[in-house]
Structures are given as C-alpha cells and as structure tokens.
Amino acid sequence: MQNLTDEILKATKEALDDIKNCDNIQSLRKVSSEYKGKESNLYKILTKISQLQGEEKKLIGSRINESKAKIDNALSQKEQELKISEYEKEESEYLDITLIKEVRTLGSTHPVTQMIQKIVDIFGLYGFSHVTDREIETDWFCFQALNMDIDHPAREMQDTFYIEENHILPRTHTSSVQIRTMLKSKPPIRIISAGRVYRNENQDARHSFMFYQYEGLIIDNNITIADLKSILTQALRKIFENDKIELRLRHSYFPYTEPSFEVDATCMLCEGKGCKVCDFKGWLELLGAGMVHPQVLRNVGINPKEYQGFAFGGGPERLIMIKNEINDTRLFYENDLRFLSQLKKL
C-alpha cells in the first residue's frame, strides 16, 4: 500500500512538474491529454485498485481523486496563466497603423460616366428612361427632321464631319435620338439619352472634336415652359447638391425648338455674387432647351395640335468642369491615370 501511495505521489509530482514546465497552450493541452489518457501513470494505478480491499481501496481511491483534483487545478491555473501571458504578448506588440501598402485595389468609372449616371438617375425620378441609339447618322435624322434644311449653316463642312458628303455623318448632337425615338413610340414620351457627338472643330482647351452630350425629351398633352423651368431647376439643384440654384431662361435660337432658350443657373461657386468661373456674371450657361418645334413633331408623325413638349441638352463635361473648377476639356480624353484615379465611384 505504501508503494501505491508513493506511486501516486510520484505520478502527481511528475504531472505537476510537467504542467509547470509548459510555456504555451499547445504543450499544456498535450500534457493535459497525457495525464487524462489511459496511458497515464495515474490511470494505471487506478486499474490496480480493483485488486485492493475495504479501507485500503477506499483510501487509495480518495488519494487518487485528490491527486486528480490537484492536477486539474494545476492545469486550469496554468491555462489561465498562459492565456494571459499570450494576450499580454499580443497587447505589447506594436503595429504602425499609418503604414499602408501601395496597392491599388479599387478602380473607377470615367468622370463623364459618373456625371451621366447622375443625370440619368435624377431624370429617372421624373419618369425619363434612358435610350441608346446610333452615332453615325444620315442627314435626315441629324438635320432635316430637326428642321435644319439642306442649306442650314450648321450643316456646312466646317462644322460637321462627313463620311459621305451631305449624307452620312457622325452625329453633331444627340438630338437625332429624339427623332428615332419619336418615330418608334407614341406619346407620352419621356426619354434621356447620352453619348458621343462630333464637331469639326480644332482641339483646344475649350473645344474638342469629340465630346459627350445628354439630351432629354418630354412629349405629352400639357407640357409648358413653366414645366420646363421647374423640372430643370430641380434637376440642376440635385446635380450640384445646392438648393439655392435658380434658373434663368435666356432667349435663343435653335431650329428644332420654338421658343428656344439658353438655360443659365446661379453660379454655385459664388452663389451669384460673381467670380472667375462665371466670368463675374453670377450666372453660368449650362444647357440649351426649348419647346419642341411643331415642324419637328409633324416630321415624325405627331400632331402638334394634340401634343407638345420640351427638349433640353448639354455637356456633362461642362458640369464636371464647373463643379471641379477645371478649365481644360482635353483632360477628359487624354486618359492620364493621375487624372482618372481621383474620383472613386463605380
């Protein structure tokens, strides 16, 4: 019996020493499973108990239990210690969070795409749907149907590129989409269209032979100039996120609208006080608009006595340039990553 007691003490001491010597959770877990497994010395002693009798059995049994409890206690204590020291270790580590790796992971759409998306979204709220259509057009869709007859000055070679003289041309404005849409669908019509247009102009800071245009058209029974003013005011306020913007309709001339307007908005940079961007006028010319000319409606088979509406159009580049105080339109088509990577929008 003394032998067994000694064995228990020895096994317990060994276990406690092993536990003490553990310096990480993994080795502690190993020790733990060793001493709890069937191969452990304590287990072996336990198997011998069956050979004992009465008091002796009782005594050795309780010794084993005591020693088990001791080991369990030591294990959990050690585990606690080790955990805390690991937390402390990690807590003491230092990470310089201002360090960044120079990896570009997010790209972006082109600023012009972003502005067009914004315009399309805003007019979407008013029930205008986007329409995509051709870029290379016949003179009928680009000019004649829009009340610009064969002798109209805008059709001259110095303003328009031609693929076939006076016949096939890269569109000079998105208004040709109006014509194609009105021929295809019956009123009410509410569309917005954006895309590339081409003019025979020399390249400089203010002119590009290719640029983008957006164009809106609404045809219904009772659309008036007051509606035009109202919708465009609200849309421009949203585009520039500025509720103080007021619009001013300035009399103008386009063959395809009557009456026709240049639409000026309060300069949002100086709020109308006058600054460099608005040329000290307090107003910015943003788009052209007007009531669709009855002849244009007749050209596409819509009765102007029954239906009328307005159209408007402008350049997304101009809106971006004003918003960002940029004054060179070439930036949009030079595709320099240093320019393109500034506005992270998808």
């Binding site: 790209g107 972006s108 759409t109 081409y198 088509y333 998808l346």
Partner: peptide
C-alpha cells in the same frame, strides 16, 4: 435600356476589380 444598363453594370464590376475607365477618340 438594356444596352445602357449592361454597360453600367460592366463598368461597375471592372472598376470594383481595380479597372479604370478610359474614353478615347472614336
């Protein structure tokens, strides 16, 4: 406008994958 919608969706996903949209002359 399925063409417009598809174009926008493609632009969104490529940009999210790190692509930058360019616009070059026709």
């Amino acid at each position: 406008d399925i063409v417009y919608k598809t174009k926008q969706a493609i632009k969104t996903i490529i940009s999210a994958c790190g692509g930058y949209e360019i616009k070059t002359y026709s």
